[in-house]
Design a protein around this nucleic acid. Structure first.
Lengths: 189, 189, 189, 189
DNA sequence: AATGAATGAGATTTCATTCAT
DNA sequence: AATGAATGAAATCTCATTCAT
């Protein structure tokens, strides 16, 4: 039991080190040894917890998905557009709280086609589409809202994320409100 | 003279090959030899036109910037919001016409911190901010439009691009209209 | 005392496991951990009984030598050629009874030049030469028998062993009789 | 054409170097770099001609098979037992002329189960069995010759080879005559 | 005595880059 | 200018061995 916990903890430590190193240097320029050094262990020990360098990147992606799923699961209840606003705010806050993690997703994107970033976006779009459908049923939606609106909501979030990652003077947390204003409040009937 | 033209042409051929190869396999998995093969020349010949493998990526980035600058330069005249709508449409069309090129920008992002994606976004934001300022002067802008709106416009474009790159069933060209509707028409006074 | 016996028993268990593992996968492809697993103990425990991985191979060789010496010591008495026939039969039976063990000798040969397979063959040749000398003294030997005959007797045994190890449809035990017929009976005066 | 010849020559050079290195240190202890150094080239260049370290061993085996096949193909004509004698002599001479090569076969045996030493022995046995059948048809064979005699002939050769490899004071070439005397002349009707 | 996590030396292999032809 | 064989630096990964528990 104790051993198992330790093992999980150690794995998470390594993953945390990997996130920091990958965010700092990019995955392509990061060596397994860099991750080990950041985690304070020997190179070979990384392989006791992850089968390969690529598995580290996959692990980062997994842990991002877990966080992402957690956010989607907590929009609570109330009117659909309120829930949508909470969803957008929740995702932005989650990303803002984990900049390194978010940065590494770019490497997942670029270097690991097998890690399915497409499905992450799809999942967001589906959750949002469902909320828009409910809003329409509730009569809260302006009738001229595009069928592509879910894509636009995701785009607003991810596009702001991208600009923040490129330049941290872009204030991601402050952007949550305008994103919601534009993509949620702006479509109320 | 003729030789010089040939040289430029050959360089562009190689760059085109690099774009296709990088888009297909990702930069990290692309070998100089792959690019040479795609261009129909020998590996060593690539080095007659580009100093290194990284220089190929830099070349792709440069040619993207050139295209991007060209689009920004052609918003024409008329009212500010009309020009903004043309800017957005122009960028989206340009990206849609060069999917491989756009895909490679992700690798630029992830693998080449020295290639300044941040400045690309900044340039877009500045052009858009200028147009918004003019629109405000023309009295065309709703007074409550956020100071962050330029960031949101860029986000909408880049966020849609990202989703289209991840999944080509996301219809980038069709998204131009809703993007404009939301981010340009939606802010008219 | 008891502990000492236990220790010896445990050492032999590990050696037996090593023989099975090495025979199955070859020494080069066998890991210390494989041997430990086969013996039902932890990897580190192997080192309580053997100083190194190579020592396991040396141990296998030692135990082969012990068996081999035992066979040479039991040719009993009687006429020299009868004792030679018993020697040949005894060696073949010993090998046939310990196929894994014999298989591992190939790895000793190939991987451990310090383990002296040459001396094993030499010892056989010397024992056989001595018997041939006695047979000659007893007038039992055809006068034209080659001075190299001892080498041929060893060759017949080892050569059959080799073929049996390569392909177990070669019937080693059945070959004992023809070997004796050819190399022992065939040289009677 | 010239390039092709060079390429083949270079491949053979490397293979020759591999034979020498493997014979000297054993395959297990031989590094690709050792082979490269023996061939006077850089480590990486070995990989231009052989896909892996194991491929070097496979190459050695292949070239042994080629030599072996060549010997089997040159027993000429005449009476079956004469041809058998020539076969035996030819194989022994071939082995004696290529001690390093023969030494490496032990590593093939021990380290590369996929390289089929069993088939080499089988091929020898089949060629010899065929000659024995013909000798019987020619009435040259003693009626009591064992059905296993082909195995014994192969054993005599391989067993002498083994002893010579272990100790070069065992005179392989001198042993050809006694081997033939015992295994070929000894079975004449 | 037994364990098995941790170590790190060392081997294989890749591939960007060079350069003789 | 073009080639592609050769190079060797560098990275991944393995696993024998150690040692704290």
């Amino acid at each position: 039991m104790v051993k198992s916990v330790d093992r999980i903890r150690r794995r998470e430590d390594i993953l945390g080190a990997a996130v920091r190193v990958f965010a700092r240097k990019g995955f392509a320029a990061s060596r397994v040894e860099d991750v080990a050094a950041e985690a304070g262990i020997a190179k070979g020990s990384v392989y006791l917890y992850f089968g390969s360098r690529d598995a580290l990147l996959a692990g980062v992606f997994e842990s991002y998905r877990a966080r992402s799923d957690a956010v989607l699961a907590t929009v609570g209840d109330g009117q659909a557009l309120e829930r949508l606003a909470r969803l957008v705010g929740g995702v932005v806050d989650m990303l803002a709280a984990h900049r390194d993690h978010a940065r590494v997703l770019l490497d997942v994107w670029a270097s690991a086609p097998s890690l399915d970033m497409a499905s992450v976006y799809r999942q967001y779009r589906e959750a949002i589409s469902e909320l828009l459908r409910q809003a329409r049923a509730e009569g809260e939606l302006r009738p001229d809202v595009s069928e592509h609106h879910a894509t636009l909501v995701v785009a607003a979030i991810e596009g702001c994320l991208l600009q923040w990652l490129a330049d941290d003077r872009v204030p991601l947390t402050e952007l949550a409100a305008p994103i919601i204003e534009l993509t949620v409040e702006g479509i109320r009937a």
